[in-house]
Design a protein around this nucleic acid. Structure first.
Lengths: 133, 133
DNA sequence: CGGAATCCTGCCTGATACTG
DNA sequence: CAGTATCAGGCAGGATTCCG
């Protein structure tokens, strides 16, 4: 008679739940958007194609590692196209696909919500501080 | 003559940029939504008020620590209300505010996008695997 | 110029145990 | 039942260095 049954049971339930979450389409999108840099890159590419170094300059705070990682992910998901011009030195440009553009619209929706409701959120925060202080 | 000027300059630029981002309303919302549990709690409360233990049961995979932390954050931002009934033992219920309801609508928008476009994303991924394999 | 590989650190998270 | 406190592990993310 194992004494760890309860623990194992819980762990198992958790794993199943995680699997369920992983399969959820919304989570997939959410996970992408949650990535700080994804949003910024999407916006940076909003005006049209940009070179790698241009994006890096526009976003300023990003490390090459994260920028490359982000761009790879977006390319993988079909949100941006990557074009290599084999000149010397190499030139690489990125551009939003139609899919990428449509995702940008979602970001717009979030932005709109934020701009409309942030005052309320901040008021609530101030209120909360006051009550708990 | 400092030899680390370039580094410091970059670091400084990064800090400014971070501050800029922190001030961005959209980021604030995005950071909240990015939290895996926030979305789930919002949805769990969608049907009406729930008790703490009910939420924990519905979401299943969450630890009390994270659940409490999440609920505190939502309360702080005025997205949910917390009601304590001083019976024995204590009963605590949570409910979405109007603000919380409206944020739930945003999640709905994301869900809609996901359901419409995920097939394309997955096709892109399969394609990407093929090309890079 | 654009990117890959390596190392290293801080924070987020979960498990556990205790209070009212 | 609802919540706090403490501790330990994992991994996301940055800095650095080298390749095409």
């Amino acid at each position: 008679m194992p004494t760890t049954t309860a623990q194992q049971r819980r762990k198992h339930a958790k794993e199943e739940y995680d699997a369920f979450l992983a399969a959820c389409p919304s989570r997939l999108v959410l996970d992408r958007l949650s990535d700080k840099w994804v949003t910024l890159v999407l916006v940076a590419l909003g005006d049209g194609e940009q070179r790698y170094s241009e994006i890096a300059r526009i976003i300023a705070g990003v490390s090459q590692k994260m920028l490359t990682q982000t761009l790879r992910g977006l390319e993988r998901d079909g949100l941006v196209t990557r074009t290599v011009t084999p000149s010397v030195p190499v030139t690489v440009t990125y551009e939003l696909t139609d899919l990428g553009q449509s995702l940008r619209a979602v970001i717009g929706a979030i932005k709109d919500w934020a701009e409309q409701h942030i005052p309320q959120v901040e008021a609530a925060r101030a209120d909360y501080e006051r009550r708990t202080a």
